[in-house]
């Protein structure tokens, strides 16, 4: 079972639609049993970091998520805000995250007056640390982004892809069974479809 975590933020339906296109069904749920038995847990999310952490706490999901990711070591995929939650701390609301990947979440610091926040639109992604999720592609990979904050990995080894908006930033990270992407593969048509294909293969789903 693939479980897409529904914690009141973001658009789990879009993720579920895209996955269904790959012929795989997922359940959208905040039910602990559905989380416990997932062989892949996807954490989507669009919105405010502090609000997301509040929701996870008030829905009493922190223990089960930590157990799933760190004890059971089930594959976990975070998308956009979902990925940012994996890190230790965010400037957005100045609160701590789940702390699964060393590093912090910072607001874009853009010097060019014409460059607007959020970073919104299609941007090319560059593979880092020879990640099989982004390596050896026939054409440049482009994904849809919409975000005002980006992650900064505590150690470079956790960065698996970068993108450029004013400067180069980490747009995908991985530590053990935990993978996160800043972009929206569920809204990146063919590129997103292929991303999920590669990811599913990568985790032997």
């Amino acid at each position: 079972m693939i479980t897409i975590l529904d914690y009141g933020l973001g658009n789990p339906e879009s993720v579920s639609n895209m996955i269904r296109r790959l012929g795989v069904n997922a359940v959208i749920s905040s039910d602990k049993d559905k989380i416990e038995h997932a062989k892949l847990l996807i954490i989507p999310g669009v919105g405010h970091f502090a609000r997301a952490m509040e929701n996870l706490k008030s829905m009493d999901l922190l223990d089960i998520l930590n157990h799933k990711a760190l004890v059971q070591q089930t594959p976990v995929l975070g998308i956009c805000l979902g990925m940012q939650l994996f890190f230790e701390h965010s400037e957005e609301g100045n609160v701590d995250g789940l702390g699964w990947i060393p590093g912090v979440v910072k607001k874009f610091n853009l010097v060019h007056p014409d460059m607007k926040i959020p970073h919104m639109g299609w941007t090319e992604v560059i593979c880092q640390n020879n990640s099989p999720l982004f390596m050896d592609q026939e054409e440049p990979l482009r994904y849809y982004f919409v975000h005002s904050y980006h992650v900064v990995c505590g150690q470079n080894q956790y960065a698996i892809a970068s993108a450029n908006y004013g400067y180069s930033f980490t747009c995908a990270a991985r530590k053990d069974n935990i993978t996160g992407v800043q972009f929206h593969p569920e809204k990146s048509h063919l590129y997103g479809f292929r991303f999920f294909q590669r990811y599913f293969k990568f985790i032997s789903l």
């Binding site: 339906e13 879009s14 639609n17 895209m18 849809y144 929206h184 809204k187 990146s188 048509h189 997103g192």
Partner: peptide, 8 residues
């Protein structure tokens, strides 16, 4: 309509 749309 949304379920057929894999773009924003």
């Amino acid at each position: 309509m949304a379920s057929e749309c894999f773009i924003p």
